[in-house]
């Protein structure tokens, strides 16, 4: 446990590495001070499609990171309820909202076709500096 490194960030000499709230909390704080990034019932006992669900989530995250290049400031949260997938996150206020709406329509439609279920995006906007929780 002591040697575990994942989800922990190295402290810089000048304390200049910005961290978001999500990054600032180590993995053992999940369910205490921060929440999960994927919400589904696949991994409960007798849950449906656990592997498929994990791979699909990976695909969604890769697709969004590529399509919304450098625009997502936070982690991508994927919530599944019933036959619907809701994708939430914080995006950067860099361009006119018109361009974001184009991307929203594009992402929702394309992912719906690929995942065979309705996909909805739930976005919030922020400036780069707004999401910095602390520097280490």
């Amino acid at each position: 446990m002591n040697k575990s490194q994942s989800g922990r960030y190295k402290i810089t000499n000048k304390r200049s590495r910005p961290l978001t709230y999500e990054m600032a909390k180590p993995p053992y704080e999940i369910a205490h001070k921060k929440s999960w990034n994927s919400w589904n019932t696949s991994n409960i006992i007798n849950g449906n499609r656990p592997m498929e669900c994990a791979v699909e989530d990976l695909f969604i995250r890769k697709f969004l990171t590529g399509t919304w290049c450098t625009l997502f400031l936070s982690e991508i949260i994927i919530k599944r309820n019933h036959n619907m997938i809701r994708i939430a996150g914080i995006v950067k206020k860099s361009y006119d909202p018109i361009k974001y709406y184009f991307l929203i329509g594009y992402t929702e439609e394309l992912l719906s076709y690929y995942l065979h279920c309705p996909v909805k995006l739930e976005l919030q906007s922020a400036m780069n500096e707004d999401i910095i929780f602390k520097y280490i």
Partner: peptide, 28 residues
């Protein structure tokens, strides 16, 4: 989207945002 940055402030913007979203869907 329910965020001040994304909420249209005029009729013109409302129309442009709605059509822009639809245009994205058309591209997909």
């Amino acid at each position: 989207m329910d965020d001040p940055f994304f909420i249209p402030t005029s009729t013109k913007r409302k129309r442009i945002y709605a059509l822009s979203k639809e245009s994205g869907r058309r591209a997909a």
